[in-house]
Amino acid sequence: MTTNVDDRTGPRENPVPRHHQLIVSLFGLYARQHGGALAVATIISLMQDIGVESSGTRSSISRLKKRGVIDSVQVNGRNGYALAPSVIETFIEGDERIFHPRRAAKGDQWLLATFTVPESQRNIRHKIRSSLVRMGFGSVTPGLWIAPGHLRDAVLAYFDTRGLTEFLEFFMADHVGGADLQQNIGSWWDLPALDDLYSDFLAHNRGLLESWTRRVELSNDTESDASAFADYLVLVTQWRRLPYLDPGLPIEFLPENWNALEAEELFQKLHALLASRAERHADRAIGEHMLAG
Rank of each mutant, 00 (worst) to 15 (best):
L242T: 07
D221W: 03
F201P: 12
G207I: 03
D225W: 00
Y198E: 02
P243E: 01
T213K: 09
E217C: 14
P243K: 00
R240K: 05
V216T: 12
P192S: 03
L191M: 10
D195N: 15
L202T: 05
L235F: 14
T222F: 12
D195Y: 04
L218E: 13
L191T: 11
S199T: 14
Y232R: 01
R214M: 04
S219N: 07
S224Y: 03
D200G: 02
S219A: 15
L194P: 10
A193C: 10
T213C: 04
L191G: 08
L233W: 05
D195K: 13
Y232P: 12
D231G: 15
D221P: 06
P243N: 00
S219M: 09
F229H: 05
S227V: 07
L197G: 09
D231L: 09
T222I: 13
L202R: 02
A226Q: 08
R215W: 07
L194V: 08
L197M: 10
L208N: 05
E217A: 15
D225S: 11
R214A: 10
L209C: 08
P192Q: 00
D200Y: 01
T213W: 01
V234H: 10
P192E: 00
L208S: 13
L209Y: 08
E210H: 08
W239C: 05
A193S: 14
A226W: 00
L233E: 06
T222P: 09
L208C: 14
L202F: 03
L218G: 13
H204N: 08
A203Q: 10
S227G: 05
Y232H: 11
L209D: 08
L218S: 14
S199Y: 03
P243C: 01
D221K: 05
R214I: 05
A203G: 07
A193V: 11
A228R: 00
G207R: 04
E217T: 15
S211D: 01
A226D: 02
E217L: 15
L233I: 12
L218R: 15
V236Y: 01
A228F: 03
D221G: 12
L218M: 14
A230N: 10
T213N: 12
E223C: 14
L194D: 02
L208Q: 10
Q238W: 01
V216Y: 02
D225V: 07
L197H: 02
T237G: 07
H204P: 07
D195S: 15
D200N: 07
S224E: 01
R240W: 03
V236I: 08
R214H: 02
Q238P: 01
R241K: 00
L233Q: 05
A193Y: 06
D231I: 06
P243M: 00
H204K: 06
L202Q: 02
S199P: 06
S211K: 10
S227I: 09
P192G: 02
W212Q: 06
D231K: 12
A226I: 10
Y198R: 04
D195V: 13
H204T: 08
R214L: 08
Q238Y: 00
L218P: 07
S211P: 01
A226P: 09
L202A: 02
S224V: 13
S211C: 03
L208H: 06
N220W: 00
H204V: 14
D195F: 11
G207A: 11
D225N: 12
R215S: 15
A230E: 07
W212F: 15
R241N: 06
A230H: 09
Y198W: 07
